[in-house]
Design a protein around this nucleic acid. Structure first.
Lengths: 144, 144
DNA sequence: ATGTTAATGCAACTAAGTTGCATTTGTCAA
DNA sequence: TTGACAAATGCAACTTAGTTGCATTAACAT
């Protein structure tokens, strides 16, 4: 999987039909580094006056995921979040109060070492992991 | 929070009204170490002939969580899972194919060290983290 | 310019969880 | 042991997140 500069350019290269809905979706991901959920994306599009049906958003998210342009991440709660694959794999810090999400970069060597040994011990082919931290951001911590 | 032998005994100690629904819920957690979701608990209770309304299950899960008897864990998907707090904090290995969940025990020192430094750097009060591994169990890996 | 096939919109559906409110029931004090 | 009363429950209706089937529309290779 070649890392493209933008999702739009990846769609072109992969000969995926470039519809208005997909342009809008690609633009949303190309213009933010934040993890986004389908309801958030729908709201964003509506705010910008782009009317796209939610079914289309869900289907195009699946498509972008299949193309390797975005990846799903679980941040607790019932929504699935997605972020651009082009961003290096990293982890998240989630405020339990206001849902603010911050990206964090950490040294994964230790985790990857453990991942390998767990895979061996449990006879699992481990494909990915998720490491997320939950707590209170400064603002919310003060206002409690 | 004192770790009780069973959730039932914790409810007694905390002077929480011991209703049939709570006994049943406590029993479910006291008799398994597996993470359980509300729909799974409902199904289990029904199979055992204990009729409890789903509203009650959700409310009692919140209660048990507030009492520190169980903790929520996110395993991807749209269901929230819970497991007994009395079990030492640990992590999970989830098969993406058959949803089999295995507990794993790993050396957390490195993660906790990073947790502290992230908290400082981002000015977050980190309360907990979740580290889950996803992949294919031996059975599913072979049958693909 | 057009035919083919993929993409879209819509409505209806499912699953998981929540809320308001009337009724029932544990528990404590008398 | 028995009430009183707050707490817990059940029920129905609702919300949120996501899915499915199907008829219509539109991208794009030719």
């Amino acid at each position: 999987m070649i890392k493209q500069e933008t999702i739009i350019s990846l769609l072109k290269d992969q000969k995926v039909r470039l519809t208005p809905a997909r342009r809008a979706l690609a633009h949303v991901f190309d213009s933010t580094a934040k993890p986004l959920s389908a309801p958030e994306i729908l709201a964003l599009m509506e705010k910008r006056g782009v009317m796209v049906n939610k079914t289309t958003v869900y289907r195009d998210l699946d498509r972008l995921e299949a193309l390797g342009a975005i990846r799903p991440i679980s941040l607790g709660g019932r929504r699935e979040y997605y972020e651009r694959v082009a961003l290096a794999h990293h982890h998240h810090l989630v405020c339990l109060e206001c849902e603010r999400i911050e990206d964090i970069d950490l040294d994964e060597r230790e985790i990857l070492r453990q991942e390998r040994s767990i895979g061996r011990a449990h006879r699992f082919t481990i494909l990915r992991h998720s490491l997320e931290f939950f707590g209170l951001c400064q603002t919310c911590a003060y206002s409690m």
